[in-house]
Write a protein that binds this DNA or RNA. Structure first.
Lengths: 241, 241
DNA sequence: CGCGTTCTTGACTGCTTTCAAAGATGGTGG
DNA sequence: CCACCATCTTTGAAAGCAGTCAAGAACGCG
């Protein structure tokens, strides 16, 4: 939280015209006017990728750290038999670091929609955790948090719970990124992509979504999703505690 | 790799008498004699936990970053119905950071055997990635790498492959920590613990281990495991590419 | 209007879980 | 030294969830 945000909306920063992604980053750590200016310079160096194109090929040995500006991307790894497991979705405001893996677990980045990104800010270390270092730390912690959750989902939930929990997570992330409208949020994914994230087959995702709709829990399709009964969703995955 | 390691064994450090864990950390980043001295001071502040005790309770709001010195611990989260998913095992040399999670995905640390640990070194930022900052970065990257792999395992492998892949990973990690003897490594886990890591039931882990033994792939039990045919194991999980 | 992608449905298979109980193992106290 | 108990491992049978295969419907696009 920034000091200057007292009495203002939490995502407010000094410059009113700044990019939504900068507003998002400003919620992770205090950013000085100078920090914001540097970010705006980076954002101006925006690059794009068209849908379905690899941003970083699986098996790449190194890559720059990126900042997602718009669109959706995903990190996935492939199995020998051509199946794929999505480890995380990347949405605007996410910082994407390169992670070295074994050849067999090579994980690449793929644009899911048209994507805009720019180089992530270099960290100029400070003793405290403000500025870009703070962003890096907070962003890293979030990544770990969602990865732990993904592990728990795949390891100990059935298809129904997995789907509900994942929808809750996506809503939360998109909400924090300022991209959700209440319980409604963009979800530009085919059922096959969801299947690859949830460790299911697209056929089973289809049946599971039908069950969710039948139970009046969510409305989903056309690139959007709406949680019709979030309380009940949270109950199902045990988030009511 | 350190500059001074040229022509020497990769794990060599200035002080020959240093703790094994310090030798392990020295493989992650260059450590000055001063760094080693500071580490030795930290290691001297060793604390212990008895087996089966929580080191950090699930749901804790914050905790110090720790350095594992000896023994095994695990990070897990519990589902509503009392089941548990282990997200990672912690072995000597691992740096254990606290990760804030939602209440429903609270993940705590539990000692699996008697465990020795100490506070992790504070990072004094430098421009390069040597010293403790380098350790933090490398350690973080490793954690991510193994988490991605855990996701891929749970999402896209059957019981047999999951078990093989996990054994390969544990051997690799223990080997890097200097705790494996060739293909033989300690594995002080009950089948139920393995089940909680692999997203299976203990009954099925039992049957799967029998299949592994029957195929002559591994020898396992008594707190130790030996990969009898690592090449074949790697082939099974697609690591032959 | 034809084509490719995505979504949907049904029948069948099979991997994994569940439930239950019987061995093995190791530590403890009488 | 052995009975006893707790924990862990092993086994069998049955049920269930998710995968596979195949085909048809709906949709968007050129």
């Amino acid at each position: 939280m920034t000091k200057r945000s007292i009495g203002m909306h939490a995502t407010a920063v000094s410059s009113p015209a700044s990019h939504p992604v900068i507003r998002r980053l400003a919620t992770l750590a205090h950013l000085s006017a100078e920090d914001v200016a540097r970010l705006e310079k980076l954002v101006a160096a925006r690059r794009t990728s068209t849908a379905r194109r690899d941003i970083v090929a699986a098996g790449a040995q190194s890559a720059q750290t990126l900042l997602m500006l718009d669109g959706w991307a995903l990190r996935s790894c492939l199995t020998v038999d051509g199946r794929r497991q999505i480890t995380q979705f990347l949405i605007p405001g996410d910082i994407v670091t390169f992670v070295a893996t074994d050849a067999s677990h090579a994980n690449g980045l793929t644009a899911l929609t048209a994507v805009g990104y720019c180089p992530a800010p270099d960290i100029h270390p400070r003793a405290d955790s403000e500025g870009f270092a703070g962003i890096a730390i907070a962003s890293n912690a979030l990544e770990l948090k969602y990865l732990y959750r993904q592990v728990a989902r795949l390891g100990r939930m059935d298809a129904f719970q997995r789907t509900v929990d994942w929808l809750l997570e996506m809503r939360e992330r998109l909400y924090l990124a300022g991209l959700a409208h209440g319980e409604r949020f963009p979800l530009p994914l085919t059922q096959e992509v969801m299947a690859d994230a949830l460790g299911l087959t697209s056929v089973h995702v289809n049946r599971t979504l039908q069950a969710l709709r039948r139970d009046g829990l969510v409305q989903i399709g056309e690139g959007w999703a709406t949680l019709r009964d979030r309380k009940q969703c949270e109950f199902i995955v045990g988030r009511h505690r």
